[in-house]
Design a binder for these strands. Structure first.
Lengths: 342, 342
DNA sequence: TTTTTTTATGCAATCGTTCCCGACAACGTT
DNA sequence: AACGTTGTCGGGAACGATTGCATAAAAAAA
């Protein structure tokens, strides 16, 4: 099945003009006489002419499209960030092409390759939890493809980065637990490769240190796929509560981990009602859980916006950008029942 | 900032061959001698040559991209459906470009225009709740752009459609409420323009009729933006409970409406504990609510898959497709606490 | 009337790729 | 020796749009 659109040639033929004249008339060039211009414009309108963006891309060597690579759009943080990305991109005349890595380095590489090779003008990337090898991105970046990282960033590539203040967010959440009397605070977190994991762990440690609570390695559990595989969260949870020293609070890092944890937490057989729980998540259903969930909320929409602005700035810059910044946006601790003093 | 990639010309020049020979060697044409082929292939590999998809699109008059138009990716149903779409599309070598209408006819039109004009080979559409005028889609469809509707469909365009069995799903949910002793069952639903609204209302009515409960117009409230604007759900809720005959159960249609309703339902000031609640939603957090929520779950992933298969079939068909089908997939009623007998 | 200037238009190259032809060896057949 | 095959390869035209340059006709200046 083929889909035929009117081209500049059709107009030229119909009006007995050359394609150049039509092209210029369409773009309102002063060289074209008002009558011809009017003729062309009216005919173009009549047959509903639209310039072929693909031909334009080829000519101008740009596609006016930006690629987004995230792990899962079903994750609240990312769907909100994408809304932020779109809000800026569409206003500036850019398409947004979204692809998901599903936390797999393999799929991330394939998607990036797919998006690159001149079909996008720039990339907005949040790394998968599996990613340790950045050569696929580095190669493209070195060739001149603008890339901005957001949320899950890397130090291996020197470019703009936009992140939440994860360390401070984790610090506040942990300190909040401490203030409410909790002492054995477990931390279930994402893959240790991720920047967000390191930053949040750091905040967690800082809060413990400030309040003279000794850091206990055994209270930190890593879920290498960010909770995408429920089993790994299950295992982390089991291990935490099968040890000698059971935690009296859980601090989770990551949307998926938080909700999956909550479902174990609500296990009807075992009672965890003495255990406090809080975590990073951007769900807007936290009020509806029982107990309602204390959350660390990231400014996802704004992160998406800022990252997009920086990327478009890079794309449209005449000279290579060499001065890079890392924008950090504050998180918000929303206190609800799940962390109240017992 | 510009991003340079190696082209077939670079290879030709380096190897002192013509572009045609290089092109043929790369595609493994039998006309090229094994030695030349090897030479070209090795050099291409060395400089990491990737064919320019834009040039290919222009030449082949197809982009190997399909456009998706949904109201909100943050909606669980849609993000799951998109996963289904992707799973098929990527395997068949198609890109997926997602755009959101945010329940606005205006934005839907802009996005569709943007996606069309030869930059996508076909469209997967779920209409916005505001859409009454389909001329933008009709025009493109008549020109030969393959379109498949899913979830929120229309009769005005004769093409493939993929939907959940909304009528039966609504019927089962309503009947379940009736079996559990509820009699004054309210129905809070989406915009009356939408196919899903009509179908679910129909199922609701059928269940009432079967059990000899008179249909009461006042128990049905419409939220014209599918719950995107919390106020309209608020109003619907208020009206239902300010009347003389208060409902003893609520049946909601739509992800957003269901969760927003739940938050009013959990209003700490007013007590709705006698009121049962259930609705269409694809959240996987229903277990975590309090009370845990009885839901009608749609096979979102499968709907996305089937729609994509049908679309690609249309795109790749040599002759215009004239035989259209409407695939209907079963929903699943998952019974939890929120509808238990009181 | 002739020359210069202005105005309006067309030609052709370009972007990267494919593919229809045509070119031209090195054969084998008559 | 003349011709047809076969195997390799290059030339060049597309695909749709833009744009520098050339050029025709018309208008203005000489």
């Amino acid at each position: 099945m083929k889909f035929e659109t009117a081209t500049i040639k059709d107009i030229a033929k119909a009006l007995n003009l050359s394609t150049s004249t039509v092209s210029r008339a369409l773009r309102g060039s002063y060289e074209i006489s008002p009558e011809t211009k009017k003729l062309v414009l009216e005919y173009a309108e009549k047959i509903n002419y639209r310039p072929n963006p693909i031909a334009l891309s080829l000519k101008e060597r740009r596609s006016r499209a930006i690629g987004v690579v995230v792990s899962e759009i079903a994750n609240n943080f990312f769907s909100q960030a994408i809304n932020g990305i779109e809000s800026i991109a569409y206003n500036r005349g850019y398409h947004v092409i979204i692809s998901q890595s599903h936390e797999s380095q393999e799929r991330e590489m394939v998607n990036v390759q797919h998006l690159a090779s001149r079909s996008v003008d720039g990339l907005l990337v949040s790394l998968s939890s599996e990613t340790t090898d950045l050569s696929h991105l580095k190669q493209l970046y070195d060739k001149g493809l603008p890339i901005v990282f957001f949320d899950r960033v890397t130090n291996e590539i020197d470019t703009h980065k936009v992140i939440a203040n994860n360390t401070l967010g984790a610090f506040h959440a942990t300190e909040h637990l401490i203030y409410n009397g909790y002492k054995r605070i477990a931390h279930i977190t994402n893959s240790p490769y991720l920047s967000i994991t390191k930053e949040r762990l750091e905040g967690y440690k800082q809060a413990l240190e400030k309040h003279n609570i000794e850091f206990n390695e055994n209270l930190v559990k890593y879920c290498n796929h960010g909770g995408m595989i429920a089993d790994e969260v299950d295992e982390a949870f089991q291990k935490l509560f099968s040890g000698k020293v059971k935690p009296d609070a859980i601090f989770t890092a990551g949307d998926r981990i938080t909700t999956v944890c909550l479902s174990y937490y609500k296990n009807p057989k075992k009672k965890y009602s003495d255990v406090a729980i809080t975590g990073f998540t951007n769900t807007n259903l936290a009020d509806l859980f029982s107990p309602s969930l204390t959350t660390v909320r990231q400014p996802a929409f704004e992160i998406g916006q800022v990252a997009t602005e920086l990327l478009i700035q890079m794309i449209e810059s005449k000279r290579p950008v060499t001065d890079f910044e890392t924008r950090m946006l504050d998180t918000e601790l929303i206190i609800r029942e799940s962390t109240k003093p017992r």
